[in-house]
Design a protein around this nucleic acid. Structure first.
Length: 565
RNA sequence: UGGGGAAUAGUGUAACGGUAGCACGAGUGGCUCUGAACCACUUAGUCAAGGUUCGAAUCCUUGUUCCCCAGCCA
């Protein structure tokens, strides 16, 4: 029974959960629910994988079942331990727990081999000497293929040859083991698919033990069967492979899970294929797999995404059988929803403009109380220093204020958050006319931010005390691509031609309030009025580095934009 | 020209023969010591055409459009 249903808070079930729920009701699997997340360790996990992870682990937890983490490591030429490690880290970070159920397809190589021998004995598999190119020719097109000349070898000969293949008696590509199905089948996957190929390569786990490696179609169903999976959930492109998945398991007469296919995730302004992400990394178009602009989970973690936000996002987009592209804004919404509740507030100035408060005593520093998180009273308060010289955001001052600009301008009174009302009295400029400093006066009666006479101000600014400010580097990010769909390329171009030149802006000399002096790497903060920021892993003592995870929603930016037009 | 899938507001998703709803986005207003958050309102949809039915997004027929498949990758 689904937890949500048990809580009498029935959520609408997606089609996969509906199947699982129906099966639980009918007792199809004796009430068991066993799913698996089966990544190939040939790349880092990305937000698209998170959809699958959350589906599989989510179903297991909601229906009182379990979910295995299984590495589908059947191709030694592409797979590496580095990827195994990163995948484990990422799934764990997302908050899922596979308990004892960490498996590797390669652990089943012997069982798979034995089953292949069974199939040969049943006359349902044969050793084929056709080259890769010949195999393709024989497979044929829509009109059908033709039988391999090796199709009718005797069981004895097949057994002997297959053993020799295993023992390494033949060079790479010399022979394959194929299932004997139907070369005229309208589904190409059923035209005597290859089960084993000869590869003399060192596997990251089994070393040089094997010279033959199983193909996906052969291996995957067997892995599922061995692990007693009930619902084998995979992406849409495997729909064509389901008849073969079923054929192998039926031919072997072994435990037979149900394969269910769903549509993979697409997101605007990003690419999601491992191949393309790898190219971005290898061509150094980004700083690595964990570059905060990458949709990889390691990148998003470094950017400041919370696991909670990603999990909510995956639940929100649901799952279906048709291709769709989710608006990046929805991801951002889920992000902000979580960070708003959980991020401590802090004041930071990205583009500092010095302000001297002329009637404030020189040399005086007072501590003012600031709320850490208005969404969470248990987060308490902290003291923020204030003095005669402070920094405010350059964008918060305009000498000639347009309509609807409520912030500081000569002669106007505004509030410095948690501090005082101040009025701008003078603008200091250099010889080129650039504003270098503002002169203000303050009203001592407004300490804390409220006027005893009840007068109001239109706007509240964040600020940082000049004397105590911490210097920091802040990295601002925008979409990695300028195009909503970077895969939709014009003639002669490729997706890398649409990389956004402004995807990364590095700001130095940013001013941060002193409470962040020892902020831990990957800790998440809201810089008031600016956005959510995360301490980068490059950050070191005395050399703070922040990533902007996301901006706050910004009404003024919209107005400004509209006024420009 | 073969096979396998799929079509619901701009986007993502519900409705399982009985009032087409929710979220995001966009817009308007309210509130505010974050132009945030929060609150209210507005916007906009069943791929098409037939049929069955008292009643169709849902069932049937025909058509249209889109996605996947001819690796010894997964």
């Amino acid at each position: 029974m689904s937890q949500d249903a048990a809580n009498q808070n029935p959520v609408k079930l997606d089609f996969v959960r509906q199947i699982v729920a129906d099966d639980c009701k009918s007792g199809k699997w004796d009430g068991r629910v066993v799913t698996r997340f089966p990544p190939e360790p040939n790349g880092y996990l990305h937000i698209g994988h998170a959809k699958s992870v959350c589906l599989n682990f989510g179903i297991a937890s909601e229906f009182g079942g379990k979910c295995h983490l299984r590495f589908d490591d059947t191709n030694p030429e592409k797979e590496e331990q580095e990827y195994v490690d990163s995948i484990i880290e990422d799934v764990k970070w997302l908050g899922w727990d596979w308990g004892e159920n960490l498996f590797f397809g390669s652990d089943y190589f012997q069982q798979m081999y034995d089953w292949a021998v069974d199939l040969i004995k049943k006359g349902k598999a044969y050793v084929c000497d056709l080259t890769a190119e010949q195999t393709r020719e024989y497979r044929g097109g829509v009109e059908g293929g033709k039988d391999s000349p090796y199709r009718s070898r005797s069981v004895e000969e097949n057994l002997e040859l297959f053993e020799k293949m295993k023992n390494g008696d033949f060079p790479d590509g010399a022979k394959t083991l194929r299932a004997k199905i139907d070369m005229a089948h309208p589904n190409f996957n059923m035209r005597d698919p290859v089960m084993y190929r000869i590869v003399h390569a060192t596997h990251h786990r089994t070393g040089d033990n094997w010279c033959v490696y199983p193909m996906y179609d052969w291996a995957h169903g067997l892995e599922d069967s061995i692990e007693n999976i009930t619902h084998s959930i995979c992406t849409l492109e495997f729909e064509n492979h389901r008849p073969l998945y079923d054929w192998f398991l039926d031919a072997l007469e072994v435990y037979h899970p149900q394969q269910i296919e769903f549509a993979r995730l697409n997101l605007t302004y990003t690419v999601m294929s491992k191949r393309k992400l790898l190219k971005l990394v290898q061509d150094k178009l980004v700083a690595g797999w964990d570059d905060p602009r990458m949709p990889s989970l390691s990148g998003m973690r470094r950017r400041g995404f919370s696991p909670e936000a990603i999990r909510n996002f995956c639940r929100t987009i649901s799952v279906n059988k048709f291709n769709s592209t989710v608006d990046f804004a929805l991801l951002e919404h889920c992000l902000r929803q979580d960070l708003n509740k959980t991020s401590p507030r802090v004041m930071a100035v990205l583009n500092p403009l010095k302000v001297v408060i002329e009637n404030y005593p020189e040399g005086q520093i007072e501590q003012l109380e600031a709320v850490n998180n208005p969404e969470d009273s248990s987060a308490g308060t902290r003291q923020v220093p204030f003095s005669r010289e402070i920094y405010i955001e350059r964008d918060d001052f305009m000498e000639e204020a347009p309509k609807k600009f409520f912030r500081l301008t000569p002669g106007r009174e505004v509030r410095l958050r948690y501090a005082y009302f101040v009025t701008c009295t003078d603008v200091v400029k250099d010889s080129d006319g650039n504003i270098t400093e503002l002169r203000c006066t303050y009203d001592p009666a407004t300490k804390g931010g409220d006027a005893p006479d009840g007068r109001k101000v239109k706007s509240t600014l964040h600020w940082v005390c000049a004397e105590n400010a911490l210097d920091a580097q802040v990295r601002l990010y925008e979409h990695l691509f300028t195009k909503e769909n970077p895969d939709d390329v014009e003639e002669g171009k490729d997706f890398t031609d649409y990389i956004n030149p402004n995807s990364l802006t590095t700001l130095t000399g940013c001013k941060i309030e002193p409470s962040l002096r020892n902020a831990a790497p990957l800790s998440r903060w809201q810089f008031e009025r600016l956005g959510y920021f995360c301490v980068d892993t490059d950050s070191k003592d005395g050399n703070l580095v922040f990533n902007r995870t996301a901006t706050l929603r910004d009404e003024w930016a919209k107005i400004k934009n509209a006024q420009k037009k």
